[in-house]
Design a protein around this nucleic acid. Structure first.
Lengths: 200, 200
DNA sequence: GTCTATATTTGGATAGAC
DNA sequence: GTCTATCCAAATATAGAC
């Protein structure tokens, strides 16, 4: 007789609970802030004792790390599935808008992924690799639009993140800064690309 | 006989001790991070018991607030005493460089003044008024250079803070982003001002 | 896998003697 | 103004029974 649960079944169950905990963590962080997330609080939300969480995550930082990976994976999925215009300049605007939408739609996630506000947290190298891929995506969009060098890429990230930071810090939910995104992109492209048409 | 200390003398002594505590707080925050600052830790640094600090500051937040005011007052002093070039465009570059230097020279201060990273802290209205004056300064420099409207001012703060944020977050101490400050300013001015010379 | 019990640390803040 | 003595709350994490 096979009294024991099959290993893969147990594994699936384990993963499902992990997912459940992670979702609850996002929920708490969104409602009360990233730093307000605690093991006790999280445990209560999923109907467990705090100590039982250690079966699924070795530490609180591991939970932050899983959230970090989670958010980046989500963004990568969005970026991959976005239908880009044939015109690389239009495509760059599209991609930038998608990124801004992703960030503004969830300030907590933005804080975890792009600001360094959680006290002792640093992403693991595995999670950080995902963040790198996100940046590579932007790099490709820029190259397609005629911007190739590293310095111009740095200026781009500064410009977009500058608008986002101001928006999220001073007027979350509004558009006082991010509504200048298109203007900022045009300004940026005028600076960093050499127009080959209109030679006169 | 006048056995009691004169009130103003007592007041001066009180202020001196306050100053001493504040300096120690900056020192600790710089060495171990803003969030690592605790009453016990701070008290040990000045040779007191933690409880005695409450004679000088009613709460921990009051200490953060005093630090916030401190930093902004310092910046205002620097801005006021800077000799600006007669050419408003050159003057804008000067002022921007001074600001960037102020920020990069003390990451902890930058974090307290311009990022919102301390968990529950929000500056009092008195302290915030100082921060407003700092922004007014930038506003005047921009107006002198021919940038008057609010949207352009928002774009300016996004641009400068964007470079700073990237620099402080990803490579503190380096210049990978801030070395593009002049280029970014020129790009910005080209976008936001109408050149009256070269009408052809 | 989940629980109870507990260790351990750390924090902010108050009361009252001196 | 400074101290001792506490209070109170909250956090992460481990040990071991079931």
């Amino acid at each position: 007789m096979k009294g024991a649960t099959r290993p893969d079944r147990r594994h699936r169950r384990h993963e499902a609970t992990r997912r459940e905990i992670l979702d609850a963590a996002w929920s708490i962080a969104r409602e009360e802030g990233l730093t307000a997330l605690s093991m006790r609080h999280l445990a209560r939300a999923v109907g467990m004792e705090a100590q039982s969480l250690y079966t699924y995550f070795p530490s609180k930082h591991a939970i932050y790390d899983a959230m970090f990976a989670d958010g980046n994976a989500h963004l990568l999925g969005l970026q991959s599935s976005l239908e880009l215009d044939a015109d690389p300049v239009v495509a760059l605007h599209q991609a930038a808008h998608q990124f801004v939408e992703f960030c503004t739609s969830d300030p907590t996630r933005y804080q975890l992924l792009f600001q360094r506000t959680v006290p002792g947290f640093e992403p693991s190298s595995e999670s950080y690799a995902l963040a790198r891929k996100v940046l590579d995506f932007a790099s490709e969009r820029l190259a397609a639009a005629g911007v190739a060098d590293q310095t111009a890429l740095d200026l781009y990230t500064a410009l977009v993140s500058g608008l986002l930071n101001q928006q999220m810090s001073n007027e979350p939910g509004g558009d006082r800064w991010i509504r200048h995104l298109d203007r900022a992109l045009d300004m940026y492209l005028r600076e960093t690309t050499t127009d080959r048409h209109e030679p006169t």
